[in-house]
Lab assay of single mutants.
Amino acid sequence: TLFEALYDYEARTEDDLSFHKGEKFQILNSSEGDWWEVRSLTTGETGYIPSPYLAPV
């Protein structure tokens, strides 16, 4: 399942991933609570992002 960003987000740590509203992601790991490890389909980068900022496509 692909997810889309509902809002912009600016990374706060080196493990976070900055992204823009509308960017699409592949979920790599969603078992860590509200922070999911994802791969951006736009940039190819991986990192953690807050799951409340995402919605299924």
Rank of each mutant, 00 (worst) to 15 (best):
T42E: 15
E10K: 10
W35S: 07
S31L: 11
F25W: 01
E14C: 10
L6C: 05
E45C: 11
T13F: 15
A5C: 04
L54M: 07
L54Y: 03
R39I: 14
L17K: 05
F25R: 00
L6H: 04
D8M: 02
P50A: 09
Y48C: 08
L41V: 10
S31G: 11
H20V: 14
L17G: 01
F19R: 00
T46H: 10
S51N: 09
K24C: 07
V57Y: 08
P52G: 15
E45N: 12
G22N: 05
L2P: 04
T43E: 01
A55M: 11
A5P: 01
D16T: 14
I49W: 00
L17H: 03
V38Y: 02
G44W: 06
L2R: 04
Y53Q: 04
K24Q: 13
L6I: 11
W35I: 11
T13K: 13
G33E: 13
S51A: 14
Y9P: 01
D15Q: 14
G44S: 05
L28C: 04
F25C: 02
F3H: 06
T13Q: 11
E32G: 15
E4V: 14
S40M: 06
Q26Y: 14
K21F: 05
D34V: 10
F25M: 03
D8L: 02
W35A: 06
E23T: 06
Y53G: 05
S18F: 04
H20R: 15
T43W: 01
A5Y: 01
Y53P: 02
A11F: 03
L17D: 00
L2N: 04
D16V: 13
L54T: 04
K21T: 07
E45V: 10
T46M: 08
L41I: 11
P56C: 06
F3W: 15
G22V: 00
D34P: 08
L17C: 04
K24H: 11
G44C: 08
F19Y: 06
F25I: 01
E45I: 11
E23F: 03
L54N: 04
K24E: 04
S18E: 03
S30V: 13
L28S: 01
E23K: 00
I49K: 00
S40Q: 08
P50H: 15
Y48A: 04
E10Y: 09
D34M: 12
E37D: 03
T46W: 08
R39L: 14
P56M: 09
D34W: 13
A11E: 03
T1K: 12
Y7A: 10
L2Y: 11
I27G: 01
A5K: 00
N29A: 08
Y9W: 09
Y48Q: 07
S18W: 04
S31M: 13
D15C: 14
Y9A: 02
Y9T: 01
D16Q: 15
E4A: 07
D8Y: 04
D34R: 06
E10V: 14
A5Q: 01
S18T: 10
Y53A: 15
P50T: 05
F25Q: 00
F25A: 00
T46I: 14
Y48N: 06
E32P: 09
H20C: 08
T43K: 02
N29H: 08
D15S: 13
L2M: 09
N29R: 06
I49R: 00
N29M: 07
S18L: 02
E10D: 11
Y9S: 02
I27A: 04
F3M: 09
F3C: 05
G22Q: 02
S51H: 08
W36Q: 02
F25H: 00
Q26I: 15
